[in-house]
Amino acid sequence: MTKRVLVILSEFGYWGEELVGPLSAFDERGYDVVFATPTGKQPHALPPSMDPDYVDPPLGRSVTTPEVAKLTRDLDESGRLANPLNLSAWAPERPYTSSPDYLRRLESYHRAVAKLEAELVPYDAVLIVGGSGPIVDLANNERVHEIVLAFARAGKPVAAECYGVACLAFARDWEDRKSIIWGKRVTGHCKEYDYKDGTGFLGVPDFNMGPPPYPLEYILRDATGPEGRYIGNFGRETSVIVDFPFVTGRSTPDSFLTGQKIVEVLEGGLRRFGW
């Protein structure tokens, strides 16, 4: 049976290789790939991720080959991403406690969660693509959290790259408020690779946030708890961690390996890698 993967993308810019890397692995295996964004708008790649001459400040070199730049540009212009699913119309959001008829709204929310879980049955895995965009509209998006929680409860792979891994740190069961990655091994954008200046987003002209608004490494260290572990692998060319059901990739250079490991989880029963 053909595998189906849900790929969640930011509307404020994704890093090209972090999509085309895994997507190449999925396409090679003939997977059915369904894209989704927070409000159903077409996602686009961040311009530096399509520029092989762009020098990544922390690494002091280009991180985009001409081949990957072309793959990203071709995908961006292909129309394949033109009609993503609208998460705001699909996944529920928990009501404010102060809402009128809160109890009725909460009951409705739980019915919507059950409906979402039923609609996710045909999907075999979910991937959250990284880049700076997820900082804005994915990391603290409760609808994204509901999807992550639903896949984890179903025992299906949950994958994320770079700043997309923040979604896993913030996805929490409402009762105990512990991160879903508590006790797990994960990787993600390490402190040494954070920009000191120049963090930008699509759709926000001339806006330079400077450094990222939060150091992802610190969040992941706290979210995994004393029995889990953040693994940055700073100084190593790649960092991909599989601690089932989670598959996490540190940053851009890990994208193709992330896709490969997702395939191995789905087809080969891989449950542990990189630690």
Results as ranks from 00 to 15, higher is better:
Ile8Leu: 12
Leu9Trp: 08
Ser10Ile: 05
Ser10Gly: 13
Glu18Asn: 05
Leu19Arg: 00
Ser24Arg: 10
Ala25Ile: 01
Asp27Trp: 13
Gly30Asp: 06
Asp32Trp: 05
Val34Thr: 12
Val34Asp: 01
Ala36Asn: 02
Thr37Asn: 03
Pro38Glu: 08
Thr39Tyr: 07
Gly40Thr: 14
Pro43Gln: 03
His44Gly: 02
Met50Gln: 01
Tyr54Asn: 03
Gly60Asn: 13
Gly60Pro: 13
Ser62Ile: 05
Thr65Cys: 05
Pro66Ala: 07
Pro66Asp: 09
Pro66Asn: 05
Ala69Pro: 01
Thr72Trp: 06
Thr72Leu: 06
Arg73Glu: 01
Asp74Thr: 02
Asp76Thr: 03
Arg80Phe: 06
Leu85Ser: 06
Ser88Tyr: 13
Ser88Gln: 13
Ala89Glu: 15
Trp90Leu: 15
Tyr96Arg: 15
Tyr96Trp: 06
Thr97Leu: 11
Ser98Thr: 12
Ser99Glu: 09
Ser99Gln: 11
Tyr102Val: 11
Arg104Ile: 04
Leu106Met: 11
Leu106Gln: 08
Ala112Lys: 14
Val113Leu: 15
Leu116Gly: 10
Ala118Phe: 02
Ala118Lys: 15
Glu119Pro: 04
Glu119His: 08
Glu119Ile: 03
Val121His: 02
Val121Pro: 01
Tyr123Val: 02
Val126Tyr: 00
Ser132Pro: 07
Val136Gln: 08
Val144Gly: 07
Val144Asp: 04
Ile147Trp: 00
Val148Ser: 02
Lys156Asp: 00
Pro157Asp: 10
Tyr163Arg: 09
Gly164Tyr: 03
Gly164Gln: 09
Ala166Thr: 10
Cys167Arg: 01
Cys167Met: 10
Leu168Phe: 07
Leu168Ser: 11
Ala169Phe: 15
Arg172Glu: 14
Glu175Pro: 03
Asp176Met: 13
Ile180Thr: 13
Gly188Glu: 14
His189Phe: 15
His189Ser: 12
His189Arg: 12
Glu192Lys: 14
Lys196Asn: 14
Asp197Ala: 12
Asp197Trp: 10
Gly198Asn: 11
Thr199Val: 15
Thr199Asp: 11
Val204Thr: 03
Val204Trp: 08
Asp206Pro: 05
Asp206Thr: 11
Asn208Thr: 09
Gly210Val: 05
Pro211Ser: 10
Tyr218Trp: 13
Tyr218Cys: 04
Ala223Asn: 11
Thr224Ala: 09
Gly225Ala: 10
Arg229Lys: 14
Arg236Tyr: 14
Val240Leu: 11
Val242Cys: 02
Val242His: 02
Phe246His: 04
Thr248Lys: 04
Thr248Phe: 06
Gly249Pro: 06
Ser255Trp: 00
Ser255Val: 00
Ser255Cys: 07
Phe256Ile: 08
Phe256Lys: 13
Phe256Met: 09
Gly259Asn: 07
Lys261Gly: 05
Val263Cys: 14
Glu264Pro: 01
Val265His: 06
Leu266Gly: 10
Gly268Asn: 12
Gly269Met: 06
Arg272Pro: 00
Phe273Asn: 09
